[in-house]
């Protein structure tokens, strides 16, 4: 799936959690993506992360990193 679209969606999730502070936000974003994204979408965003992860907001990037490690 197009990386731009995935980045956009991930950042949009990030914005909701932003006001909850760093720790809660990172956990919240990671959980949201794990619960609602189908595997090919997660694979797509991991691939984008491996390719440098350009365009991902900091909390979102961190959330995807934790998710990828899990």
């Amino acid at each position: 799936m197009s990386a731009d679209r995935l980045i956009y969606m991930a950042n949009q999730i990030g914005k909701f959690f932003q006001s909850q502070g760093h720790d809660k936000a990172v956990a919240g974003i990671a959980e949201h993506i794990r619960k609602f994204w189908d595997p090919r979408m997660r694979k797509g965003i991991f691939a984008h992360l491996d390719a440098g992860g350009a365009g991902l907001d900091p909390n979102v990037r961190e959330a995807i990193e934790t998710l990828k490690k899990a």
Binding site: F36, D38, P39, R40, M41
Partner: peptide, 9 residues
């Protein structure tokens, strides 16, 4: 056990 695609996806 994995979630599937939503309509826009």
């Amino acid at each position: 056990p994995e979630p599937g695609l939503r309509i826009p996806n």
